[in-house]
Amino acid sequence: MKRLIYIFAALFALTSCTIYEADEPNPDRYARKAYKLMNEQITFQLHVLSYAQVINQYAQADETERYAIEDKHLPRLRLRQTDDGWRVMDGDDTALYVIFDTPLDEVGSIWKIKQGDGAVSNKYWEIECKGQNLWQIRYASDFYSHSVSLLLDVETGELTEGRLCDTPIYEYTTTGEGCIDQNVEVASPYRTEMDIVEPVRSDRYIYTSYYGDQVARYSFMEGLLSFKVTNTKADGSDASTFLCKITGPQQQKFIHNPK
């Protein structure tokens, strides 16, 4: 009998295996997503603003200057003037529709912009000139999985060496706010609200890739953003807040539950 007990005890020692060890906590995971979502929306608006500035130059240029603008900024694209505005053509497809009556750099001028064929959202948004090199972007759009609204004040800086077809081509300083509402029908019910606490400066930068190549990118370089992420189906008591401090190109530091 004693031997039997010893055998059982030995077998019992085999039990309760850990198949995988626990993960490490990652409090930045949702914050990184929220920041990425908002970063993409703001960068897209800055890119469109760059297009608008080039179209503005092109519309006011003579024939010789237009050739120069095409060679420098639009090697793969074409600008076509229509009855109600301008189109940015990428092959046979329209990338952007632009409607305006007055030059973009005239204070009070409002340009209406819409994404081209194939875009999910089909609404115009506005860019208004608020001063010298200063514009306000008012954007609201609905996509399949989420809706976005942005109110940004953007100051233009120096022209960069970037290509318009790839990235914004000016250095910008941005303030404002934004909101992304996820569609509860097809996604989790979260709202991300963002407020730019310290102006966000964005610019082109060069880095050395893993293979030793010099690669150019466009990124936020400095600034401070405040985020609040709320579950819209809960009572709001579990809202998560954090600050995102931009410490360099593609570098952020997240500060959770700031006081």
Partner: peptide, 23 residues
Amino acid sequence: WEPNSELIHPDDFLYNGAYKNSC
């Protein structure tokens, strides 16, 4: 997993403990 979506998901606020089997 990190859910395969760019949008925020409830699992983004959680992490896994050890995965155990009773044998």
